[in-house]
Each structure stands twice: as structure tokens, then as C-alpha cells.
Amino acid sequence: MEKLTETVLSIMAGSKITLEIFVLTLAMSLPLGFFVALMRLSSVRPLAVIMDVYIWIMRGSPLMLQLLFVYFALPMVGVRFSDISAALLAFTLNYAAYFAEIFRAGIQSIPRGQYEAAKTLGLTYAQTMQRIILPQMIHRTLPPISNETINLVKDTSLIYILAMNDLLRVARTIVQRDFDMTAFFIAGLFYLVMTAVLTAIFKRMEAYYGKYDE
């Protein structure tokens, strides 16, 4: 019993770094993804092309490779980050690309008539985006955003290879030390609880933003 408590406490400590990566990545990649989407849709050709290439690289290569690149390859050319910054940089750049594609599709799904109505009423481009397009886009993109967010919870376990004591690494250390699988079950339970909480939050958001249709 005492051992179980100790295991839970260790894993809880490990989940701190997991949560930290998760929350910070989300907080940075969502706005970044939105701006990437706007640039991707911009009529300035070079900008749109650069964003296209960026999205292609980020979605077309493994996140694991990107992590290793930032963590091991960049220091070789003199670019050095702390462990956590390296992980955050890789996760943010990667997730921003996925979010950008979701936002782009969301923005493009808003009928042209909404822009035209806003224009004939005298709204500026910024007002139209902020007041008319964004709220409708959020409503439409919540389900895929929710999916990606839950993926992110699980992807945080990749930092395990960067020798940071995240939830998964702590669990593995205990399992190897004690020859006892319990820690894995507890770790699994932690992930399940996190995704359950997120699912509940997104359900409420969908209900809030969805109050206007049906």
C-alpha cells in the first residue's frame, strides 16, 4: 500500500512536466496556427507559399524526428536550448502547422456572403475577421481542434526520449526498478483522466458555440 502511494506520487510529479508541455504548447500553437492560416490564405503569394512549405514539412515528417533535430542537431551548429524549451519549440511548431490547416479549412468554409454582408454594412477587414468570421470558425473547428488537443496529450510522451522526467518516463523507471506493471496502469489512468477532462471541456465549448444552430 505504501509502495502504491509512492508510485502514484512519483507519477504525479512526472505528470507536472507533461502538463506543463501540454498547456504551454497549446497556448502558443493555437494563436500561431491562426496567424499561419491567415498568411497561408493571404493574397501575397510568397507568404502563402512559405506557409505551405512550412506546413508540409511539419505535417510530412515525424514529430519524433523534429524533436531530435531541435534537441540534438541544432546544438551541433551552436543553437542551444534548455530541455524544456527544445521540447516546447518542436511541439509548438509542429502543432501550429496542424492547427493552421484546421483553421484554414474553417475560414474557407465560411460562405462569401458573410464577408459581403459585413462589407456592405461598413465593417473593416479586421472587424469582419474578429466579429463575424472568427466566432463562426471556432464553432466549426472545435471538433477537429478537440481531436488534435487529445493527440497532443499523448504526444507529450515523446519527450521521454529527451531524458525529461515526464509521466511516462517516471512510470517506466518504476516498472524497471520494481519488476511491477502497476506503474504502467497508473500512468495509463493519468492519461485517460486528462483526456476525459479535455473531452468534457470541449463538449461544453461546443454547446456554447453551437447554441445558434440545430
Binding site: P111, Q114, E116, A117, L121, L123, Q136, H139
Partner: peptide, 29 residues
């Protein structure tokens, strides 16, 4: 700004109530 337009497809803002649809431009613009 001295021209108003009514479209075949209405183009109301679906995420706003009827009253909010009317208030939006006078408040913002």
C-alpha cells in the same frame, strides 16, 4: 456607407441573435 444591400441568400450573421444582427454595424462602425 450610404448604400444598404439585401441579398438573395439573406446573409444574416448566424451566430448573432436577430437584435444583435441589427446592432452590430451601428455599434462597430
Amino acid at each position: 456607407s450610404c448604400m444598404g444591400m439585401v441579398f438573395q441568400q439573406f446573409n444574416l450573421f448566424p451566430h448573432m441573435t436577430v437584435l444583435e444582427n441589427l446592432l452590430e454595424a451601428p455599434l462597430q462602425v
